[in-house]
Simulated assay, not measured.
Amino acid sequence: MFFHGNLMTAALALTLVPGLASAHFQLSYTENALIDRPGDVPVKLLFWHPFENGHVMDMAEPLEFYAIHRGEKIDLKGTLARTTFTGAANEAVAWDASLPVKRAGDYVLVTVPAPYLETSEDIFIQQITKAYLNRGQMPTDWTGPQGLKAEIVPMVKPYNVLAGSTFTGRVLSNGAPVAGAEIEIEYMAAEPDMATGGARPATAAPMPGGAIVAISDENGYFTFGIPRAGWWGFAALGVGPDTEHQGKELSQDAVIWIRAFDVK
């Protein structure tokens, strides 16, 4: 699956797009992707520009928030608590939650947010987001799709990617591959501080030239070289089947977060 002929084409399509502003990204953030022991793992949901610690958007209560573990769905909406998150530019509504981790295996966090009205563009944005945690080094769920309207399926184990290697994903819309999808790529240079509800200082500056973008090939695949450790987000823009909300254009995006580590 990894070595089809057009994978290199998708990799070479990676570019910097000058016209794009800094990217909106839905976060389903945990401090760690690898969990050592059983317990409740704190999760913070927010809509932000984490590369540059930029503007934070008010996030309505998610329509759905759950985890997939060993093929079973764990509803997490009951753990949600409304809060605020403070970035460098402003404060906005966010949500605290928790994930009960018991058995070993993968925990795929799925967030289906309510559409957000971006008034500057007069469109709604809905970023259906996945993040991956693992306990006990036992892979159980990361390889498959979750049956979402829009999603990116990882072709590389997403919670321990090697910095300096590559990440490959496949963009799906209602389970079908999406050719020519535009994928914005974001480094979480500023991470949330779970204790204070604010942002830690950014450890890198955004790239010159605008948002980092890759284009999927005819089978929905794209590849990106991971230059450094940390959290990396990928947002396939407008790939979902829903294109309108409340009489306005809707960009239904697929977002995935992966965690990269340095080799030591």
Rank of each mutant, 00 (worst) to 15 (best):
S98R: 06
S98M: 08
K102E: 08
K102A: 04
G105M: 02
G105R: 00
L109N: 01
L109I: 09
V112S: 06
P115A: 10
Y116A: 09
L117E: 10
S120Q: 15
S120H: 15
I123T: 15
F124T: 05
Q127V: 15
T129Q: 05
K130E: 05
A131N: 08
Q137H: 14
D141S: 02
D141G: 04
W142M: 00
T143G: 14
P145E: 09
P145T: 11
Q146F: 07
G147S: 08
L148C: 04
L148I: 12
L148G: 01
I152S: 00
I152F: 00
V153Q: 00
M155P: 10
V156E: 08
K157A: 13
Y159W: 11
N160T: 15
V161N: 02
G164H: 12
T166A: 09
F167R: 00
F167H: 02
R170Y: 09
V171S: 01
S173H: 03
S173W: 01
N174G: 04
A176F: 13
V178M: 00
G180E: 10
G180I: 11
A181Q: 03
E184H: 10
I185L: 13
E186W: 13
M188L: 13
A189H: 04
E191A: 12
E191H: 14
E191P: 07
P192V: 13
M194I: 11
M194E: 06
T196K: 09
G197T: 06
